[in-house]
Design a protein around this nucleic acid. Structure first.
Length: 850
RNA sequence: GCCGAAGUGGUGGAACUGGUAGACACGCACGCUUGAGGGGCGUGUGACUUAACCGUCGUGCGAGUUCGAUUCUCGCCUUCGGCACCA
């Protein structure tokens, strides 16, 4: 055995061995129970970053732990390989996106292998492989057939920088989620997936995912945004037509005194009277010219215009003027709102501005509302008044009855409305999966026949950087003949949002080579769902919601048989580091600051706030350097030890040093006792050996419980550190080599999922022949845990005053007597009366005096 | 405004169903080892007070429940994340 720990040499040797033997390759042919562990696959940007290191270290601990526990573990890796950066590289550096992507993947694969992650590399694929994306095209065709994919013209979120459309989820603070350019409105013909059809199921199942963090479920519930209410029809005055509104406040129907329509409402111009037409048209034009995002922000002034038309409140028969209002949205509910100024703040402001009627219909308990003196709408609860048969009822309780009444009268129906919109998937980009349809003057939208799939993305395209997709200029691609009528037709040049690929890749990992469909049912049956999914919380809504949606769609298409893709979800926190900047040169990389000064100008550098590592803030650390300096085991250990997985991790070089030091300490502990333990002496159970064994087995218990399901890797590691400390101070090494050997072997076994290289190496050097995976995860001996004596904490009136050792077999009375006889306690209670003595067996005694 | 998460030493963090607050680690100090440096090994390290023991205070703030509260309840403050003119 080498005296010195040489991480690089050890790691390269073990990685070669794992690679050569396809060590972590799995199949369905196994006696063992399956466990599917998945980490979110990376975009091949070129280099891994600390976020990847953390994500994949966490995943690898779970994968290796489950494997050691005897599970058949599927742990795959691949590449989310379509996307804009590849195209930007083509424009900026003249490298073809395909080459750029392939090169990046090759590089990142080396980096991941260098981390010693236990992937089944046989299952690796990139989403830009034709063998992957062609099946996505097939899924699309089936969705199209079922009406789950459809085309419509709509105002879309357009990013002028990326020259493409964004889904609502991809807009953050009115800006592109990727490049932060402000998003503008654009009217475009787009493909949509009908995620709204699954809104209810997606929402209902948020209650059936106990393995998900509550915060993620809440975000998804908010995003789906279900509201239960009524659709109510208001007849127009003088015609037979009606206008339908959606409301969640049918309890205020008797107070509805006017109506507000969205400016885009189809009936807006139709019902406008001649003398109001000029004003209405001007208003519509004005609203159209305004930015939609600005217009729909809360502080924007409420404005409207009278149409000259009236409708009738169906329960009060009151004549209600119809307005157009800028705050009414066409794409929520019905685009029409019954206005109740007394009980809705927006309507209240609007009514004041245009001097409209107000009627109070809900009277709160502790004040009397009068429209003349109200300064704001009353949106709380109370008793209903001015509401005919419902007078005197509690408004919340009456909602159900009102809905029923409206239904029987044929005025309205109970309905459910969702905030979520259909998912726009068209992107005006080249480096993506072509949407397999064409346009024929005769036949309209024609799906590419399944037998003609795949629609292969051509590689001979030109990148001008002038915007628009190069596919639009690629005649061989877009010029096609219609399969239905044989006439010339034009192929769709838009490609799919790359979130489509990541919506089903987890299922393809079960059968990456399956050649007769997207998913091999038998393989999917065995492996799915994913037992544990791990990734960043930034995907809480987008990716995770789309993947859930796709799973349900694939189920309904008969492709597989699961309702939810991910049984358990772990969302890990970000990797952060302090930012540094200099007055002259702005943000600085860590290596550009030496002795607190900017290397470019020698001015002192300012330390800014700690933020998520990002290239733009330059507060990044390159994992390659870390691994080259300390090895992969140290890099892994640091990212697991410094914080629990779900919290943010603050980068600290000194803490990395500490982890490296610990591994050296472990190495030395084994090295120092090498001669003593090489014969694997029998474990002694008496005297000091018994004490060491107690610590050894207690550690096994703690580490097992900390990893399994709790993911408290930091405390698991600290428990092993304590065991190592105990070995160092264990003085009877020569006397009890058996107990020592057991302790050292336990350290190695328990650390195996965290730092796989050093542990395999130490295991071998201890004279073992089979590898750690064959040996399996250690179990603890209950008998070894038994304490002879317990430390009893003694409190007087809840304050700790003394501690004594008491035999573990002592009964309550004995303990109490021992406590009351204790010198310190006698002094503490000398001049007081003992009122009560509380004994917590084996732990604590509280003497209450007064 | 609504919803969710969090607030503990100089620092990262621990304390699982109410029972020794600060495990483990970083940093710092001291000692041993070494020719020295590095490294290693060990001891100490919440604050105040003290020579030391003792003592007092202490988990964002304020109340409450309890023999006992970082943990439970109520009210507030701060930070982060999500939603927000959604009828």
């Amino acid at each position: 055995m080498e005296e010195r720990y040489d991480p690089i040499a050890i790691e390269l040797a073990w990685q070669k061995s794992w690679n050569d033997s396809n060590k972590f390759s799995v199949s369905e042919q196994s006696e063992k129970e399956k466990f599917y562990l998945l980490e979110m696959f990376p975009y091949p940007s070129g280099r891994i970053h600390m976020g990847h290191v953390r994500n994949y270290s966490i995943g690898d601990v779970v994968a290796r732990f489950k494997r050691l526990q005897g599970f058949n573990v599927l742990h795959p890796m691949g590449w989310d390989a379509f996307g804009m950066p590849a195209e930007n590289a083509a424009i900026q550096h003249g490298i073809h996106p395909a080459k750029w992507t392939v090169d990046n993947i090759a590089n990142m694969r080396i980096q991941l292998k260098r981390m010693g992650l236990s992937y089944d590399w046989d299952r690796e694929f990139a989403t830009c492989d034709v063998d992957y994306y062609k099946w996505e095209q097939q899924i699309f065709l089936k969705m199209f057939e079922k009406g789950l994919a459809y085309k419509k013209s709509s105002t879309v979120n357009w990013c002028p920088e990326c020259q493409t459309v964004l889904a609502n989820e991809q807009v953050e603070d009115d800006a592109c989620w990727r490049c932060s350019t402000p998003v503008i409105d654009k009217e475009l013909d787009q493909w949509f997936f009908k995620i709204t059809e699954y809104a209810e199921e997606l929402l209902d199942y948020t209650d059936k995912l106990p393995g998900w963090p509550e915060s993620v479920l809440t975000m998804q519930r908010n995003w789906i945004g279900r509201s239960i209410g009524c659709e109510i029809e208001f007849p127009l005055e003088n015609t037979l037509e009606k206008i339908k509104v959606f409301t969640t406040r049918q309890d205020t129907l008797y107070g509805a005194t006017f109506m507000s329509l969205a400016p885009e409402h189809p009936k807006a111009l139709e019902l406008t009277t001649d003398d109001c037409r000029a004003d209405v048209e001007a208003f519509i034009a004005k609203v159209r010219s305004q930015d939609k995002k600005k217009r729909t922000s809360e502080d924007y002034e409420k404005e409207g215009v009278f149409t000259g038309a009236y409708c009738i409140n169906p329960v009060t028969r009151r004549k209600m003027p119809i307005f157009l209002a800028n705050f009414v949205l066409m794409d929520y509910g019905t685009g029409a709102v019954m206005a109740v100024p007394t009980h809705d703040q927006r309507d209240f402001e609007f009514a004041n501005k245009y001097d409209l009627d107000m009627v109070v219909v809900i009277q709160p308990k502790d004040q009397l509302l009068d429209p003349k003196s109200m300064t704001e709408a009353w949106t709380g609860g109370g008793l209903m008044i001015n509401s005919d048969r419902f007078d005197g009822q509690e408004n919340e309780a009456a909602k159900e009855g009102i809905a029923d009444y409206l239904a029987t009268e044929g005025i309205g129906d109970k309905t459910v409305n969702y905030r979520i919109r259909d998912w726009g998937v068209s992107r005006q980009r080249y480096w993506g999966n072509p949407i397999p349809v064409m346009y024929c003057d005769q036949c309209g939208v024609v799906p590419v026949p399944e037998k003609d799939l795949p629609v292969v993305l051509p590689t001979d395209v030109e990148f001008t950087g002038e915007g628009g997709s190069p596919l639009e200029k690629h005649k061989e691609f877009y010029s096609v003949t219609c399969p239905q009528c044989g006439q010339a037709a034009r192929r769709e040049t838009d490609t799919f949002d790359t979130f489509v690929e990541s919506s089903w890749y987890f299922a393809r990992y079960a059968c990456p080579d399956f050649a007769s469909g997207p998913i091999d049912r038998a393989a999917a049956e065995y492996w799915l769902p994913v037992d544990q999914y791990i990734g960043g919380v930034e995907h809480a809504v987008m990716h995770l919601l789309y993947a859930r949606f796709f799973t349900k769609v694939m189920r309904d298409l008969g492709l597989m048989n699961v309702d939810e893709p991910f049984t358990n979800l772990l969302t890990q926190g970000m990797v952060c580091k302090e930012t540094q900047s200099c007055a002259e040169h702005g943000w600085l990389y860590p290596e550009e600051v030496v002795d607190g000064k900017c290397v470019k100008c020698d001015q002192p550098a300012t330390i800014g706030r700690t933020e998520k590592m990002s290239k733009s803030k330059m507060n990044v650390v390159d994992p390659d350097h870390l691994i080259a300096k300390y090895g992969a085991d140290t890099a892994r250990l640091f990212s697991l030890f410094a914080a629990p997985p779900e919290k943010d991790l603050e980068w600290n070089e000194q803490s990395v040093e500490g982890c490296y030091r610990f591994l050296n300490r472990v190495w030395r502990a084994v090295y120092d006792s090498h001669a003593l333990i090489s014969s694997h002496p029998e474990v002694e159970t008496e005297g000091e050996a018994r004490k060491l064994r107690r610590i050894t087995h207690r550690t096994i218990k703690k580490v097992t419980e900390d990893i399994d399901g709790r993911f408290h890797f930091n405390t698991a590691i600290s428990a092993v550190m304590e065991l190592v400390n105990a070995i160092y101070v264990f003085e009877a090494k020569d006397k009890y080599p058996g107990a020592l050997c057991e302790a050292l072997e336990t350290v190695v076994k328990l650390l195996a999922p965290f730092v796989p290289h050093i542990t395999e190496e130490l295991w071998l050097s201890m004279g073992n022949t089979s590898d750690l995976e064959t040996v399996g995860w250690p179990t603890y001996d209950e008998k070894a845990l038994v304490e002879d004596e317990n430390l009893i904490v003694i409190q007087v009136n809840g304050k700790v005053r003394a501690k004594i050792m008491v035999s573990a077999t002592a009964d309550k009375a004995t303990v109490e007597a021992a406590v009351l006889a204790d010198e310190i306690i006698v002094r503490q209670i000398a001049d007081k009366t003992v009122r009560k003595v509380i004994v917590v067996p084996g732990k604590l005694v509280n003497v209450v005096v007064g």
